[in-house]
């Protein structure tokens, strides 16, 4: 065995570009810490304030529970209506964006660009825009969730559609079926389970964002939370946070059990 290669060394000096990249990263990090004024004293003071907040938040104020419950229901409505509309619109978007179902590559790249744009702009910004367009309230929240859902779900639907085996579609095409029939007869059944899982996750995601959308006035429980914080009603704020927690965890359980049944 005269061709035996040497054992690789334990340590190899990194290239200078690696050193440089680390140096730049470190410089940015230190600059950030300084600019934010991240000091131990401030952190300690923050912990003190946090203790003050908790002291005033306990016990949670159960007084206005019915108002909070209605606001929570509004948040759920925003999430479910927004996601439902968003998912239904995502299917045609995904079919146009998937390589194997798009009518033309130009259509594909255009639609993919639209989806990417919807995804890149945060839902909070969509909500701010729609509050201007349709006024304060849940409608602005619903519209923001619709766009956010398309940006997320259409992308995953398209990726799943591209993974579909060509065989079943070919079999339906060979019966003389048209393109739309092939898509509905072969591709949608094959991708249904995965699309359902994505849609359920979209609802979970939307409930969380619908809470924060309220902070900018797009309806729901976030409006209540923002008001309580501003009025220093920490006990009420704490109760609102608990309600949100319970609802989010409960929906995650429901969603997990549906997912188990579908897949």
């Amino acid at each position: 065995m005269n061709t035996q290669a040497a054992i690789p060394p334990r340590w190899r000096a990194p290239r200078w570009t690696v050193w440089a990249t680390w140096a730049v990263f470190l410089a940015i990090f230190v600059q950030g810490v300084v600019a934010i004024k991240l000091t131990p004293e401030r952190l300690l003071r923050g912990i003190g304030n946090l203790g003050d907040f908790l002291a005033r938040a306990f016990p949670p104020d159960t007084g206005g529970l019915d108002a909070v419950a209605w606001a929570m229901l509004e948040t759920l409505n925003i999430a479910i209506v927004g996601v439902s509309v968003g998912v239904v619109l995502s299917v045609p978007f995904a079919l146009l964006a998937a390589r194997n179902t798009t009518p033309h590559m130009l259509v594909r790249s255009t639609v993919r660009l639209v989806i990417a744009t919807l995804r890149t702009i945060p839902d909070l910004i969509w909500a701010l825009i729609f509050v201007v367009a349709v006024g304060l309230g849940p409608l602005a929240g619903v519209l923001a969730i619709v766009l956010d859902t398309i940006g997320f779900a259409a992308r995953f639907f398209a990726e799943r559609i591209e993974e579909v085996q060509p065989g079943p579609s070919e079999a339906l095409a060979s019966t003389g079926a048209g393109r739309l029939s092939v898509v509905m007869g072969a591709i949608l059944p094959e991708t249904f389970a995965s699309m359902t899982a994505t849609s359920l996750y979209s609802v979970e995601k939307a409930i969380r964002s619908a809470v924060t959308l309220g902070l900018v006035g797009a309806g729901g429980i976030g409006v209540e939370l923002a008001a309580s914080m501003r009025l220093f009603q920490y006990d009420r704020a704490f109760m609102i946070i608990l309600v949100i927690l319970v609802v989010v965890i409960a929906f995650e359980q429901v969603s997990a059990s549906i997912r188990r049944r579908v897949i």
Binding site: P168, T175, A177, S181
Partner: peptide, 27 residues
């Protein structure tokens, strides 16, 4: 590879054979 559609019923797979000759295709 058979190329039948796994997620739908056997009955639906057989019905699919008529897709090309009926009005409204898959519907």
């Amino acid at each position: 590879q058979f190329n039948i559609i796994g997620n739908v019923s056997v009955f639906q797979n057989v019905l699919n054979g008529a897709m090309g000759r009926v009005p409204f295709g898959v519907l």
